[in-house]
Simulated assay, not measured.
Amino acid sequence: MSIVGRYTRLTPAQSDRAVREPGWARELAEELAEAEAERQLSVADRRCHGVGTAWHALAFLLDRRGFPVDLLHDAAEVPDTAAPGYGPPRLLVPERVRLAADSLAELPPHVLTEGVATDDLAQAHVHPAGLWQREDALEVVAGHYLELAAFVRTAARYRHALLVRLG
């Protein structure tokens, strides 16, 4: 089973409640994702977004570029002992979402992957290892990057927080 990265946009009231009631935040994220899975929505209209197994590659490539926001770990833990997955959910506050959105706008996908080969990701033990055997692996990651950037821009526009989960 592979680990996937998931983001959920939360209104200010929802993010406040998420801190007070972490189990509620997990349930909300799951309900929103399930409801959206049945509909064809643009990235801008979604409340949930998944980057699949590209989460680790995106984190690695963004870190390599000195990106000012760690979109996985630069967020406060939301203690949820019942949360399935790999570590507790995290909450990226609206101010950090705005910084991320502005920084993503300045980093085109070809610059993100510039000077990197799939062998570099494999040697750095970026998961999933099987992805780096594909010829189009970097294009797959760049596609996830473009969608994530659009999702983060929407969150910033609405001054939403992001609930970040790995699982």
Rank of each mutant, 00 (worst) to 15 (best):
A83S: 15
A29G: 10
G87A: 04
F60D: 00
A117G: 15
F67H: 08
R26T: 09
L121M: 05
E27F: 08
V93S: 08
A37C: 06
T113N: 07
W55Y: 14
L121V: 08
L121N: 06
T53H: 12
P109I: 00
V93Y: 11
G52D: 04
A75G: 12
E34I: 02
L91W: 11
H73L: 06
A33T: 14
L92P: 05
H73A: 05
E36T: 08
L28F: 11
G115A: 06
D80P: 07
L91E: 06
L91C: 07
A59L: 03
V69H: 02
A75F: 09
W55G: 02
L32A: 07
T113S: 12
D74H: 13
E38Q: 14
D63R: 15
G87K: 12
E31R: 15
L58D: 02
G23T: 08
G85K: 13
A54W: 04
R20Y: 05
W24L: 01
L121F: 11
P68N: 03
L62C: 06
L112R: 07
F67V: 01
A76P: 04
D45S: 04
V111R: 15
L72E: 05
A100G: 08
L32W: 15
E36G: 02
T81C: 01
D80Y: 10
H73I: 00
R98V: 00
H110P: 00
W24G: 01
D63K: 15
G66W: 09
L32Y: 10
V116C: 08
D74A: 14
E95T: 10
T81I: 04
E106K: 15
A83G: 09
R65W: 06
E77A: 12
E38K: 13
D119N: 12
A25L: 07
D80K: 07
R96F: 03
G87C: 09
L32Q: 13
T81E: 14
V97Y: 12
V116K: 12
G115V: 08
V116Y: 13
E27I: 01
T113C: 10
P94C: 00
E77Q: 11
S42W: 03
V111C: 01
V97Q: 06
G66Q: 08
R47N: 02
P89Y: 03
E95W: 12
A33D: 09
L41H: 13
E31Y: 11
A105W: 06
P79Q: 09
G66R: 11
Q40W: 14
A83C: 13
S103P: 02
A37V: 07
D70Q: 05
A37S: 13
A82H: 15
C48K: 01
A29M: 11
R64G: 08
D74R: 13
